[in-house]
Design a binder for these strands. Structure first.
Length: 487
RNA sequence: GCCCCCAUCGUCUAGUGGCCUAGGACAUCAGCCUUUCAAGCUGAAGAUCAGGGGUCCGAAUCCCCUUGGGGGCACCA
């Protein structure tokens, strides 16, 4: 009891570099991080690279980058299991010495065939324990024949294991539903089960927060801790994040890799806020929480048990909220790389920061992601607009009256002494009255002429930013289009 | 097939026996604002709390069964 509360809080995020981290992995990292920070604990990063065959080049860097991007800073590590092989081998040897493990010489072929046969007979696929009670002589013979064994755990044949999960409560597994799982592979690398508990023990991990998919391997881990006479950490299994088809997140679910979200222009703070709400909630109404608030309020008691489906639309909304909350300077700073990357090549670089700033003040509240900023703003940068001439006469004004209106507007604007939104509005409203046109119709035609589209930021502010010369040029161009349309 | 877990609006969720004729958010629809879009505001629609049995004066909340969904069952993690 006392030792429990005294034990220092040490959490770890332990991804395997067999692919890029997806939303589920990152949510696990986030909860570990939040819990560690909440309790002034230590957050450790450990790379579980024990699968040589499935290792993906560059995955480690992407994992580190993703954590850095989201601001999930770690206090220790990254540790690499591939550099700690001797510890696992020693532990495996100790288990053999103490009769908790044994060498198994069965070939992968035999095991595969057996599994298939069992499945065919609709029986649970389990190792038949053929090597469990090999005599020393039999073992020596097999070894002499050149077979490299794996080390298997001697799972108790009878009884059951119960553990207390911080989220799911009491969970019990009968031993006869388990089999003698592999601890050490024939290539000398440990399996997840061995490496994981050895590291958690020696790294003095106090709480293991991991996805629910691990729940059914927990009894094996508990059994291992018991066999080694080590104190097990507290387990907390987190509800899964599922794809829209309600299945476990995988490659076929499209953009689930976290770096995709960075590329799509989501803000780290929005991402963290959103992910925190997948499986955790503060109360019945609070949804927007800063990093500090999340740390302050995070608790396992408020983590749910039901799997969540990731809902991108809500993320977009939340990202929009965070985008709008940014100061203009910060917004410009964040959006600049996206403009740089996605604006057409014809646009001169480097972009003028003063001009970009004026433009983006009109774009900020219209963007849900940074990646759509270039799309929303490109007409501010383009020299020549390319658009369908029919947009000009799409409203109630036909081509003829459109021409008339644009010509009149050009004339008035040419004489404008000053060029700001208020002045422009004055001039054009007066013109609408003069032409006996509803203001909205006149503005509509001009909007298309100026921006090349029917939906855009407010017309007068847009014109003010673009400047007199460019605006008049665009009106001229619209006239040509309309005239061509008439013929 | 076996084992484990879960089950409230389309989605994320609040709810731990009476405050629930079930609350909030996203999305949807309508209206307002308005030069378009966006934002904002207001409102609507949307869950017989998976179904069926109990327990109780009283059940979304406790128990059981059924159904459904998910996860696990590798010399992968």
């Amino acid at each position: 009891m006392q030792s429990e509360s005294q034990r220092s809080v040490r959490l770890r995020f332990a991804p395997s570099p067999t692919g890029y981290p997806h939303l589920g992995n990152i949510r696990t990292a986030l909860f570990n991080w939040l819990f560690a920070r909440r309790h002034d604990g230590i957050f450790i990063l450990r790379i579980e690279d024990t699968d040589v065959a499935r290792k993906v080049e560059g995955a480690v860097d992407i994992i580190l980058d993703s954590l850095r991007w989201l601001g999930l800073d770690w206090d220790e590590g990254p540790y690499f299991q591939s550099q700690r092989l001797s510890i696992y081998r020693e532990t495996a040897q100790r288990l053999i010495d103490e009769d908790h493990a044994y060498s198994c010489y069965c070939s992968p072929e035999r095991l595969g065939a057996m599994r298939q046969e069992q499945m065919k007979r609709k029986q649970p696929p389990k190792y038949d324990r053929r090597c469990r009670d090999l005599t020393q002589q039999q073992g020596t013979e097999l070894k002499a024949a050149g077979v490299t064994p794996v080390i298997r755990f001697k799972t108790p044949l009878e009884g059951e294991t119960t553990f207390h999960d911080l989220i799911y409560g009491r969970v019990t597994f009968r031993h006869d539903t388990l089999d003698d799982f592999v601890l050490l592979k024939s290539d000398g690398y440990p399996t997840y089960h061995l490496a994981n508990i050895v590291d958690d023990h020696f790294m003095d991990i106090s709480h293991v927060l991991r996805a629910e998919e691990w729940l059914s391997s927990t009894p094996r881990h508990v059994l291992l801790y018991q066999a080694l006479d080590w104190q097990a950490p507290q387990f907390a299994h987190l509800p899964m994040i599922l794809g829209p088809d309600r299945a476990k997140l995988s490659k076929r679910h499209g953009a689930t890799n976290i770096n995709e979200y960075q590329k799509e222009g989501y803000l780290p703070d929005a991402m963290v806020n959103f992910l925190a709400l997948l499986g955790w909630s503060l109360d019945d109404r609070t949804e927007l929480l800063s990093r500090e608030e999340l740390i302050k309020h995070f608790s396992l008691e408020r983590v749910g048990k039901t799997a969540a489906i990731f809902n991108k639309e809500k993320l977009e909304w939340m990202n929009g909220v965070y985008l709008r909350r940014l100061g203009l300077t910060e917004f410009v700073h964040r959006a600049m790389p996206f403009l740089d990357k996605s604006l057409p090549e014809s646009v001169r670089r480097p972009l003028d920061e003063g001009y970009v700033s004026q433009v983006l003040s009109l774009i900020q509240e219209r963007a849900k992601t940074l990646a759509e900023v270039p799309q929303l703003a490109d007409f501010f940068f383009l020299d020549e607009l390319l658009y369908d001439a029919r947009l000009l006469s799409k409203g109630k004004l036909d081509a003829k009256s459109g021409i008339k209106a644009i010509m009149a507007a050009s004339q008035k604007l040419e004489q404008a002494a000053t060029w700001d939104a208020i002045t422009l509005e004055g001039i054009l409203r007066a013109l609408a009255t003069e032409l006996k046109l509803p203001a909205g119709e006149l503005f509509g035609v001009l909007r298309v002429a100026i921006t090349g589209r029917t939906a855009a930021p407010p017309l007068f502010q847009t014109m003010a930013v673009l400047g007199k010369e460019k605006c008049l040029k665009r009106l001229e161009m619209a006239l040509q289009l309309l005239e061509a349309d008439l013929n």
